[in-house]
């Protein structure tokens, strides 16, 4: 039992607490900086506006979906269906334009809503039917992919209006890619939701101790369902960005995408046991993965090595997380 409640020290230790919250991210941030500096020296093509914007655009899909995934992981859940849902949303959004003649903004909204509907199903299965999130979303992974193939007969959807390219390929304000603007926007909204809204706070509380949250009067079902709806909606929106980048709806899009998304969140300090995770950390994770991919291409490294490197980074990140946990647990005895 420590006795140090004096006001003089509380400010200093509050700062220390805040710092220790960031330590896990610092590890990922440190790795990000190291890779960034290394690539700047190793390849003349790396530190160019074109290449950096290119990385930003490529990362948008993973980053946007990973913000939703972070929210889910904080509740001690997981959403394995995001890849399939992104494909379903992309294809459905594309069909809205090509077959129903909807304009681009409505089609993007439509795709996002398709994702949200998948998320609602996931949320219902988890919070009302009581399925394990892994199982519920594994089912959705299969169902959504199946529906994509049924709807398209496994054929790509072409014939989209040129305006649709804007979402994934456009630029604003003298060359900043729209996908980068989207990342920043989603990140800011995500940050505010996590740190300043009931939904965010309850997500941490539910992930830390579901029963304590329930007995504190938190409507568990509503909030848990909302979390999966948000993840689904962001997966749908991400799917629209991806479709825009290739100007078509691709039924095969996003197979294995969930792994990159989960990796980004986990590298960024989100804990699969729940109660932990931040938007900033997740973005760092997403960009770390993107930089490694980009660097491998620039340096002509066999692409298979990327997979190995990313896997090792996941190990290190999770080991670090558990090491901190153990230290904290032993400090509490």
């Amino acid at each position: 039992m420590t006795d140090g409640t004096e006001n003089g020290t509380s400010r200093g230790s509050a700062l220390r607490d805040r710092l220790s919250d960031f330590v896990s991210q610092l590890a990922a941030a440190g790795a990000l900086i190291v890779v960034f500096v290394f690539l700047s020296f190793a390849s003349p093509d790396f530190l160019t506006a074109d290449n950096l914007f290119n990385i930003g655009s490529q990362t948008a899909v993973v980053a946007v979906i990973a913000v939703g995934m972070t929210l889910v992981i904080i509740t001690a859940g997981i959403d394995l269906s995001v890849g399939s849902v992104a494909a379903l949303a992309g294809v459905m959004g594309a069909l809205l334009m090509s077959s129903f003649g909807l304009s681009m903004p409505f089609a993007v909204l439509g795709g996002t809503l398709v994702g949200a509907a998948c998320g609602l199903t996931n949320g219902f299965l988890v919070s009302v039917a009581g399925l394990n999130p892994f199982i519920a979303t594994l089912g959705m992974l299969s169902v959504a992919r199946g529906v994509v193939y049924i709807a398209t007969d496994a054929q790509s959807v072409f014939g989209l209006p040129d305006s649709f390219r804007l979402l994934g390929q456009g630029v604003v304000a003298g060359g900043i890619p729209i996908p980068v603007v989207i990342i920043i926007t989603v990140a800011i909204v995500g940050y505010v939701v996590l740190s300043r809204t009931k939904l965010g706070r309850y997500a941490y509380a539910m992930g830390s101790n579901l029963e304590a949250a329930r007995l504190s009067g938190i409507p568990i079902r509503r909030y848990l369902t909302s979390v999966y709806v948000i993840s689904g909606a962001l997966a749908g929106f991400g799917g629209m960005i991806a479709a825009s980048r290739v100007a078509s709806g691709q039924p095969n899009y996003g197979i294995g995408l969930e792994l990159d998304v989960i990796a980004a969140a986990v590298i960024g300090g989100a804990s699969l046991f729940g109660g932990q995770g931040t938007v900033v950390g997740t973005l760092i994770g997403a960009f770390l993965i993107a930089l490694i991919r980009n660097g491998a291409v620039l340096l002509n490294v066999n692409t298979f090595y990327q997979q190995v490197i990313i896997g090792v980074i996941i190990w290190v990140a999770v080991f670090w997380d558990q090491y901190r946990r153990r230290k904290l647990a032993s400090a509490s005895e």
Partner: peptide
């Protein structure tokens, strides 16, 4: 009873969050 990973402050306000304009 407790969300162990959350702070003392967050545990205290868990059942009655102080809200201003929709934000904590």
């Amino acid at each position: 009873g407790l969300a162990l990973q959350l702070g003392v402050d967050q545990n205290i306000t868990l059942a009655n969050l102080p809200m201003t304009k929709g934000l904590i």
